[in-house]
């Protein structure tokens, strides 16, 4: 029983020459062969129907966003000071959060991947926790730790006069808290896949472990770090819950794009759509940047 129409247009022509580059060739041709086998038997309706509904469910909202976009008033909406402020703040904070994640997250990933110590599994679980933790809870937890009366925040305030909550720095902290696990997990995976014997080879040539890491390991895992950084950056850019809880919603200071979208939706839905489209465009760009990696990874 074959479904009459839908799969055939997507069927790749078997005679098409493969222009793939060496690395991706195996997985791509492998995937193509599998797809062809599956199509020959035809997709059974009980699977095909929910699959198409699932696809529509994911794509339809985005299409709706495009349909309802106020294209004519777009230029005005996007050039307003508030939008620019929010966009600028979002980009700056997401980038800063990514930098923070890189500086402390890459060494953490190295520790998890390369050093045997007791309780490593537990540490890895703790690192991963913010991935699954509701971001609002993360924000509350950050307040408890770094708030003006928080466990650590009190000392920061007393000793250095530093207060993080409801400041731009607080936005960076909240975003880094939520985004860093993405980077750590990605980099740790790359480190595990990388041959640790290169580090050994470097030490036999007189390199200290740190030099070996800096001059051999780091360049070898650069693609993994880049992918992890992009993931973390995208996550930080979209951060809402932890940010609004820990840093509040002050235009120009802590109001990032997602917060602005949420606020605009209540007063000016057209502006909300316009802002959403900007974020959508950024997401698509990120996806395009990661495409090669994801295709070869699967």
């Amino acid at each position: 029983m074959t479904s009459p129409s839908s799969p055939s247009p997507s069927r790749p022509s078997p005679s098409r020459p493969s222009p793939d580059k060496a690395g991706a060739a195996d997985t791509l041709t492998g995937g193509r062969r599998r797809r062809r086998v599956r199509l020959r038997g035809g997709a059974p309706l009980p699977l095909l129907l929910p699959a198409l509904i699932g696809l529509a469910f994911l794509v339809l909202p985005l299409v709706a966003l495009l349909i309802r976009a106020p294209w004519r008033s777009m230029p005005d909406l996007l050039t307003s000071t508030e939008v620019w402020q929010a966009l600028q703040l979002s980009l700056v904070c997401a980038t800063a959060a990514t930098v923070v994640s890189l500086v402390i997250g890459v060494p953490l990933a190295w520790l998890l991947a390369r050093v045997e110590f007791r309780g490593r599994g537990l540490v890895r679980a703790l690192v991963t926790l913010p991935l699954v933790l509701p971001p609002v809870v993360g924000g509350v937890a950050l307040l408890m730790a770094l708030g003006r009366n928080g466990v650590v925040g009190r000392w920061l305030d007393d000793w250095f006069g530093v207060t993080l909550p409801f400041t731009t720095a607080g936005v960076v902290v909240a975003e880094a808290f939520v985004a860093m696990p993405f980077l750590v997990i990605s980099v740790e995976g790359t480190l595990r896949a990388a041959d640790p014997r290169y580090e050994e080879a470097a030490t036999t040539l007189g390199a200290s472990r740190f030099t070996a890491f800096r001059r051999v390991t780091l360049p070898l895992i650069a693609p993994g770090i880049a992918a992890g950084a992009v993931l973390a950056w995208a996550r930080a850019l979209g951060e809402f819950g932890a940010t609004i809880t820990f840093a509040g919603n002050f235009p120009g200071r802590t109001q990032t794009m997602p917060l602005a979208v949420y606020l605009a939706l209540q007063s000016d839905p057209e502006a909300a759509i316009a802002l959403s489209l900007v974020l959508l465009a950024v997401s698509v760009a990120v996806l395009a940047g990661l495409r090669d990696r994801w295709m070869t990874a699967s």
């Binding site: 041959d195 014997r197 290169y198 050994e200 080879a201 030490t203 051999v216 360049p219 070898l220």
Partner: peptide, 20 residues
């Protein structure tokens, strides 16, 4: 003595030349 301080050179089985 740690490996980096030994006056020892190693040619590894699959050479382990740094690919970058």
């Amino acid at each position: 003595t740690p490996p980096e301080s030994r006056p020892v050179g190693v040619v590894f089985q699959d050479y382990l030349l740094f690919p970058h």
